[in-house]
Amino acid sequence: MSGETLTSAEYIKHHLQNLTFGRLPDGTLGLAHSAEQAKEMGFWAINLDTTIIAFILGVVFLFFFARAAQKASVGVPGGLQNFVEWVIEFVDNTVRGSFTAKNEVVAPLALTIFAWILLMNLMDLLPIDYIPQIAHAVGLPFIRVVPTADPNATFGMSVAVFFLVVFYSIKIKGLGGFVGELTLQPFGKLGLPANIFLEGVNLIAKPVSLALRLFGNMYAGEMIFILIALMGASASVTLGSSVLFGSQIVLSLGWAIFHILIVTLQAFIFMTLTIVYMDMAHQEHH
């Protein structure tokens, strides 16, 4: 729908391209205007859409929660405070349910993960073409509104969680304990290479699975929205296309309602797994 000249493949590609800022082939800094250009920028480029939207959503989350925290009182809570307290009690209960050690980072960490990821996932429910169209009108070649459908964002978070897990593992068990856990289990001293391999995979699998699960779900959800949108995109006015247009509305609605579940579930899973990983980092014996 973003131009008559686009084919279906181009439409999909357009929707899946981030707004990347980096060094262009001619040596100047600027926005990539095609997927190839973005690829050529290499690692030292930044997806402006992902970064800025994620930042705005994080600030929105913290703004409302900090406001509620500022006004937090023992008296009868008002609307915002009620909601915030409800979310916090939910997170607190989840943390208490699966985290047995004592660490005051875990609960705020879990809250931040849940609220931030939920907000980022919810961007998926915005009509798929609105914001790219607006961006197009302003002059930006691409924009993707769902930060969690960008693997950079999900890996960014899971890497941070991974470092926290490693940090607390070493802090609680000592460097020796951490290394011992990696090398001396489950086969004892004789099976050292096998141990390193198994435990290494185990360790690396945590951030990778955490990031890929969220990314995969949101990417697939976005893709289905794109495909549904394509149904109504055949612009020629025929009877068939108007039927397709009608079914696009119905399908979008259905998928959006179903997607609300996925959006919340994925945020919850990310939070719960983080808590579990942090708990494992605090357990003395594996």
Binding site: F43, G58, N152, A153, V159, A160
Partner: peptide
């Protein structure tokens, strides 16, 4: 769909948000 410095930006933002949440919320 490339892995690039966005990852670092996201990590830094994440850590900042968690810190803020832990401190003030």
């Amino acid at each position: 769909m490339n892995i690039n410095a966005t990852l670092l930006a996201q990590t830094i933002m994440f850590i900042l948000f968690v810190w803020f949440c832990m401190k003030f919320v």
